[in-house]
Write a protein that binds this DNA or RNA. Structure first.
Lengths: 120, 120
DNA sequence: CCCATGTTTCAAGCAATTATGAAATGGCAG
DNA sequence: CTGCCATTTCATAATTGCTTGAAACATGGG
């Protein structure tokens, strides 16, 4: 396989194809990371995270803000919960959701990233 | 609508439902953010980003490492390109891909996030 | 000009995610 | 116990995203 000038040289310097492969994250880590991004890959879910970043809320308030069907909201909440971004705690007749540590740090990161991007 | 104790009080403090809605990012921003996450929501694409974080590479090398069909790789490259995470520059017979600034900062962020998560 | 090589595009099928409405669960008040 | 309220679960339909192989497009060499 012929390669463009510059690339081949740089590739050799890092151990060729084999050397490159060694530097990559394992499949398991990639799967875990991408699963997290998948949970964040929906505007509705980001909006829910934004709300919970303000304060913990019960499902009915989230629903009132978003204006969507119960089951739809429940579905998205379960996606966020499975990803470990939020957690729900029963309180009487209600379930109060709030950000987990992971959700909180990721949220802070998102804000920072969005601000970084606005600079351009 | 009756609300659980604590929630209602906190909700009032931030301006009620209306006040909460004002604090949320606009639909446009949410769409833009989620589109970025969607591009990151695939292990193969994260692997490609990992490779390009090591050094710029032509398609054929990426293909050799991943061991997938041309068209499949091309598809994923186009997703990353549309999201503004990578850029391709023709050099003779080859196209050399590299991370954009956005891809690079996001990559750094990802590494940091992964390390944070390992602590637990 | 023609061929070989590297890469992309296209159409079709398949897989995964999301939307929807109805039914089920579980708690609490009367 | 009964009825109501908040929430989830389920089955199904609609949508979106991914994969695959064939064909098309460029580019550079003979």
């Amino acid at each position: 396989m012929a390669l463009p000038e510059g690339i081949e040289e740089a590739l050799c310097r890092c151990g060729g194809i084999a050397g490159l492969m060694e530097r990559l994250p394992g499949d398991e880590a990639l799967e875990r990371e991408s699963a997290l991004f998948r949970a964040l890959a929906d505007p509705l879910r980001l909006k829910i995270l934004a709300m919970l970043a303000v304060q913990p809320l019960c499902v009915c308030v989230i629903k009132a803000v978003l204006g969507i069907a119960d089951s739809k909201l429940s579905y998205h909440l379960s996606v966020l919960k499975k990803a470990g971004l939020i957690t729900g705690e029963a309180q009487g007749n209600w379930i109060i959701y709030s950000l987990t540590d992971l959700g909180d740090t990721l949220w802070v990161r998102r804000i920072r990233a969005a601000k970084d991007r606005e600079k351009e």
